[in-house]
Amino acid sequence: MSARTVLLPALAVLLLFALAGSLLIGPAGLSTPEALLGLFGSERGPAARVMREIRLPRSLLGAMIGASLGLAGAALQGYLRNPLAEPGLIGVSGAAALGAVLTLYTGLSAAFSLALPLGGIAGAMAAVVLVQLLAGREAGTITLILAGVAVTAFAAALTSLALNLAPSPFAALEIVFWLLGSLSDRSMEHVWLAAPFMVLGWLLLASTGRALDALTLGEEAASSLGFRLPAIRLRLVLGTAFCVGAATAVAGAIGFVGLVVPHLLRPLVGHRPGALLPASALGGAVLLLLADLVVRAIPTAQELKLGVVTALIGAPFFFALVLRTRRETA
């Protein structure tokens, strides 16, 4: 058996372990039997509440968001044929964050609990429309990147404006903390809200796998092999918006997972962009669950934000990438 054939099963097993760890470890100090009984048993005690209302949504969201980021990162890197692309590049993360921040700013999020994620998803959808309009009908990768950068910059400017005009320091702090990205205090309602969008996004992204393989030969050759690249780009942008937009909407901005995971797993699938998609989805789920375990395991007065931890892991990885690229081109 080659490394390639065991990769997906191995990642799936790792994901099960990460999920188990995420469910069984936490500040409530439940023993493993207590936790399992709380999760699967019929009683309605405090253990059941901790497991079903706090840990289960947190673990599920961690896996779903990690998978979304890993999958979207792998798809974008394949489409752009650039290992430094990440899901935020096409503007959906920034716009989703803006949409969510606007509900915080206007106080809508206090009025009903799902206003914030719904605002985030609306922001992501607005970004898709804007990027598609800006990038035009051709499939050019440069215009797509430029459109994404423009949308991201504009969303960041408006997010800053909302912070600037925040009615009180507490409102500003609430926005900043939300922007840092976290999985704590999320409910099953968040899971149910995000799940349909994410599944739709996963399907759209998975359907681009073969075209991404063809793009190994460049855009012209891929077109000549029978792929309509403008349609592929639309699926990619929509798919990313659905899953990463929903991820950002429920958990805030979580960086680097979509950059690091595809990059680490690419050599293990023989650099084939299509084969990287499922591997990167599983790997993203594992990495985000582990990062969230780190968040809960490190006892700080203020709980560390997940986005901060992924950035702390991801940024040094970027340094290593720069050094390696320099060595290879020298």
């Binding site: 460049g218 012209e220 000549s224 084939r272």
Partner: peptide, 28 residues
Amino acid sequence: AREVGYLPQGGGSYWPVTAAELVMLGRM
């Protein structure tokens, strides 16, 4: 695409795949 093959100018591979894998892309 099944009838007309096209070999663009200065073509190559963006990822370090094997020659057999690259040629297989022609079967798409």
